[in-house]
């Protein structure tokens, strides 16, 4: 059983209150929560794409596999080129193998953390299968399940995601993370008009123990999906006030703008700015790819000469 502090930290992490987590003061190193807290803090940094700070947090000489893997993940995220990335991945692979051995040290919790962190890196590297293998689709670690579910959803297998969720329901009781998983599945399948997802985020926004702009963004996105564009716009604006330049919220805002939340011209401006500021965001990458495809396809049509009076 987690201590209440740790529970709270976990809750914040699950609901995406990363900023709050990074400002956390670590407990005494002798405290049993020390490692876990440190881990979550580091992961929060990583989630905010601030891998450097995460690395600074990491003790150099730790034997703890979970911290080691967090450091590796941070290195992976921070890596500038492919070789560095590959090196970090290798570290994680080694760690994953290490925890599988019988004589390996480390508690179950540490092992689970290693799997989740390694899985995260694998997914980022596009190694879906490896990630699934590492996480183990029969795992009883809810964080791993959350990862697996998102992986399945990303490859358009909501059926498998649903299956994981149903399986987890049996042992995970009504964990917050489980609710998040359910809401995530709802986000993709759109069951019952996204009602479950929408109420989940609304409920968590009312959660007094934390505030997270991520939740606002998520609800904004849900509202976009529910075609409630004006409401979505206000959510996203609020979210952007709390965290300027957050790519997730901005991306959603661009979409909302394109769907009529703002004037077409304004939407176009927003988009141009967003595309310039976040060239690696999947939205931008996708659109750019499509733009290239457009030219290619359009070229297949021969445009006859314009009919003019002189012709």
């Amino acid at each position: 059983m987690d201590s209440s502090e740790l529970y709270h930290i976990k809750q914040q992490f699950v609901l995406g209150a990363y900023k709050t987590l990074t400002q956390l003061t670590l407990p005494d190193p002798s405290s049993p929560d020390y490692t876990s807290t440190l881990l979550y803090k580091a992961r929060a940094y990583i989630a905010l794409h601030d891998a450097k700070s995460a690395l600074q947090l990491m003790p150099e000489d730790t034997e703890d596999v979970s911290l080691k893997s967090a450091a590796s993940l941070a290195r992976y995220v921070a890596a500038a080129d492919a070789t560095e990335k590959e090196a970090a991945l290798e570290e994680l692979r080694d760690l994953s193998v290490e925890i599988e051995g019988d004589e390996s040290e480390g508690s179950e919790r540490e092992k689970a953390a290693v799997r989740v962190l390694a899985g995260t890196a694998f997914v980022q590297a596009g190694e879906i299968e490896e990630a699934l293998e590492t996480l183990g689709t029969d795992t009883e670690d809810l964080e791993a399940v959350a990862l697996i579910v998102q992986i399945y959803l990303s490859i358009n297998r909501p059926d498998l995601a649903k299956k994981q969720f149903d399986r987890s329901k049996r042992w995970a009781e009504d964990d917050l993370l489980l609710q998040l998983i359910e809401s995530t599945i709802g986000l993709v399948t759109g069951k019952d008009g996204y009602s479950n997802t929408s109420s989940f985020y609304t409920e968590q926004l009312g959660n007094p123990s934390l505030s997270s702009p991520h939740l606002l963004t998520a609800r904004g996105v849900t509202r976009i999906l529910r075609n409630e564009i004006t409401e979505a716009k206000s959510d996203l604006e609020e979210s952007l006030q709390q965290q300027k330049g957050n790519s997730e919220a901005e991306a959603a805002y661009v979409v909302a703008a394109g769907l009529g939340a703002t004037k077409p011209l304004e939407a176009e401006e927003l988009w141009t700015r967003f595309a310039a500021e976040h060239p690696t965001h999947p939205l931008v990458e996708n659109v750019n790819q499509k733009a290239a495809a457009f030219d290619e396809f359009a070229a297949k049509f021969t445009v006859p000469p314009l009919a003019t009076a002189s012709a």
């Binding site: 990583i46 980022q124 959350a146 998102q150 992986i151 959803l153 995530t184 998520a218 997730e248 959603a252």
Partner: peptide
């Protein structure tokens, strides 16, 4: 299309 990553550090859905 809109993007969201409910799980930390994963590429958005």
């Amino acid at each position: 299309h809109t993007y969201l990553s409910p799980v930390a550090s994963l590429p958005p859905l």
